[in-house]
Simulated assay, not measured.
Amino acid sequence: MTSERTAATVTEPVRDDIDARPGSTASLLRTVVGVFLRPLGGWVSAADLVTLAGDLGIDAAPARTGVARLKQKGLLLPEREGQIGYRLNPAAVGMLERGDRRIFEMREMTDADPWCLVSFSIPESARSVRHQLRRRLQWIGAGVVSPALWICPGHLQDEVQQILDELDARQWATLFQASAPTPAGTLIEAAAQWWDLAALRGEHLAFQTSLASLPAEPFAAYVQLIDRWRVLPYTDPGLPPSMLPSDWPGRRSFDEFARLSAQLAAPAWAHVRSRTGGSARAD
């Protein structure tokens, strides 16, 4: 690899594909790349990637189109190592590591944990930035106290700051660390106003129902399991039990995901090694 290619690899921007619908070609391929490529050494041949896509029921032509989308997003960089292939953009590693923590580790707040308040006033001349900020705050699980005041768990403050920096919106926003809110009504009533808990409940129940339709083959089952689950740890902020109904389904969703993930990981990795000829190990 030439020094010119090295420079391009390091500086290529990365855009997270948050709009990819779980189960779509783009989403499944992103899940494959996010889960397997780092332990494989960060590089995979184009042929092996298309083969793995085929093992998920994706034909070669749409698989290549999906890979092209990952290239456009900056997640993959074309690189030849004896044959045509793709290297994971080093700039994406931090994003994927944050995703790992969200996906594989359930974070549930306690009443003693701090909150992060995000107050912003963005001029009409930058309304596209305002739209993107609201969209991305919602994506990480922030709630809406008012149109210009959002709330999220305190441990997400670094992610909020990163979003503001990426949107060049830091000049219009102020962050506050806060203790437990004291709304006029109950905390459960406030949470239902600030977050769409009915929609979140529906997503959890749909995920739990979908587990009955996982494929029998471990690799396909593992990829689909992660692909179906990966959005929920972002949109569900992990509110403390005091702010949730007693029958909240979030814990059961995570427990089912963790159980099946542990069961499927090793045989899925064995399949990937057999397809790629690599020596990657399951973590």
Rank of each mutant, 00 (worst) to 15 (best):
Gly23Tyr: 05
Gly23Gln: 07
Thr25Tyr: 04
Ala26Gly: 11
Leu28Tyr: 05
Val32Gly: 08
Gly34Lys: 06
Arg38Tyr: 12
Arg38Val: 10
Pro39Ser: 08
Gly41His: 05
Gly42Ala: 02
Gly42Asp: 02
Ser45Asn: 03
Ala46Thr: 06
Ala46Lys: 06
Thr51Val: 13
Thr51His: 15
Leu52Arg: 03
Leu52Tyr: 01
Leu52Cys: 04
Asp55Ile: 05
Asp59Asn: 07
Asp59Ile: 01
Asp59Val: 02
Pro62Val: 00
Ala63Glu: 06
Arg64Ser: 02
Arg64Trp: 07
Thr65Cys: 03
Gln72Asn: 14
Lys73Cys: 14
Lys73Gly: 14
Leu76Phe: 05
Arg80Ser: 10
Glu81Arg: 15
Glu81Phe: 11
Gly82Cys: 03
Gln83Ala: 13
Leu88Glu: 07
Ala91Val: 00
Val93Cys: 12
Val93Lys: 11
Glu97Ile: 13
Glu97Cys: 10
Glu97Phe: 14
Arg98Ser: 13
Arg101Tyr: 13
Ile103Phe: 10
Met109Tyr: 02
Thr110Gly: 00
Asp111Pro: 07
Pro114Met: 04
Trp115Ala: 00
Trp115Leu: 00
Trp115Val: 00
Cys116Leu: 06
Leu117Phe: 10
Ser121Glu: 15
Glu124Tyr: 10
Ser125Trp: 09
Ser125Phe: 10
Ala126Trp: 12
Val129Gly: 04
Val129Trp: 06
Arg130Ala: 12
Arg130Met: 08
Gln132Lys: 14
Leu133Ala: 04
Arg135Lys: 15
Gln138Glu: 15
Gly141Thr: 06
Ala142Met: 05
Ala142Ser: 10
Val144Gly: 03
Ser146Gln: 15
Leu149Ser: 04
Ile151Gly: 06
Gln157Ser: 08
Gln161Ser: 11
Gln161Ile: 10
Gln162Leu: 12
Gln162Cys: 11
